[in-house]
């Protein structure tokens, strides 16, 4: 990577206390940099510690060995898209955006228009569909004019058509407000459809087994191209893990 990094992640160790009291190592030697406007996908099997990685970067958990260094900003604005939409059910869709947008109401409205949420701006989250709520959660993350967007399995439990629409919505928002983004997913197609670069993780503890840059002409080139790309990424992962069998569990899709 030649572009200056906006974020450097260097996590030596992150462990949790197991049931028997012994420390259980979850993340080990995770090192990567994120350039401005770069979308990086972190792909690993379910339960390998991907959400923990996002919590560390988000500052929700400080208990780890290593460092996370921000460049060019001391107080980064981080927009997070959680696995569940986590909208405030008692506030309207628009209020959910403006509440965190800190005065950027025009940006919030622009995103509501762009992501097709404008007609539903005054609806309460329990009155809209899950797909719509996820869209609103994506809009909320971009409404703070973020330095970094974190996405935690943003399309999990959506059917294939909705997943594809979700990816389009995310890319719409990103093209409107290009920002660094880190997507953790178990779905190789998500990674292939969205990312500039893919980090493949092993399980227990999670380590980076491959750091694959997607060739510029294949980036975000539509669903068919993404599907082909996902196949070659799966092969890359298989090749990386064959000798030691570092990756366990299945991350194949559907």
């Amino acid at each position: 990577m030649s572009a200056p990094a906006i974020l450097e992640v260097d996590i030596t160790r992150k462990s949790f206390a197991g049931r028997d009291g012994a420390a259980q190592l979850v993340l080990e030697d995770l090192r990567f940099r994120l350039a401005p406007r770069e979308i990086v996908a972190v792909v690993g099997p379910s339960g390998c510690g991907k959400t923990t990685l996002l919590r560390l970067i988000d500052g929700l958990d400080h208990d780890f060995t290593g460092r996370i260094v921000w460049h060019a900003t001391d107080r980064p604005r981080i927009g997070t898209v959680f696995q569940e939409p986590r909208l405030l059910p008692w506030r309207t869709v628009r209020q959910n955006l403006t509440l965190v947008a800190a005065g950027r109401d025009a940006l919030a409205d622009e995103l509501l228009h762009a992501l097709g949420l404008w007609p539903f701006r005054d609806a309460y989250p329990p009155q809209i569909s899950l797909g719509m709520a996820r869209r609103a959660a994506i809009a909320r993350a971009f409404a703070i004019d973020p330095d970094l967007v974190l996405l935690d399995e943003p399309f999990v439990s959506l059917d294939p058509t909705m997943t594809e629409r979700g990816r389009d919505v995310l890319l719409d928002a990103w093209r409107r407000r290009p920002t660094a983004a880190l997507i953790v997913t178990h779905d190789m197609d998500d990674a292939a459809a969205l990312a500039d670069r893919v980090l493949l993780l092993s399980a227990n503890p999670a380590r980076i087994v491959a750091d694959v840059a997607i060739p510029p002409d294949q980036r975000r080139a539509g669903p068919e191209a993404a599907h082909v790309l996902a196949q070659s990424l799966r092969q890359a992962r298989a090749a990386e893990t064959r000798p030691g069998g570092a990756i366990s569990g299945s991350s194949g899709r559907r």
Binding site: L60, I78, F82, E84, R86, L88, I144
Partner: peptide, 12 residues
């Protein structure tokens, strides 16, 4: 807890 975490994440 999820909403609490959301609020913390968005620095409310």
């Amino acid at each position: 807890r999820g909403l609490e975490e959301m609020a913390e994440s968005f620095r409310m």
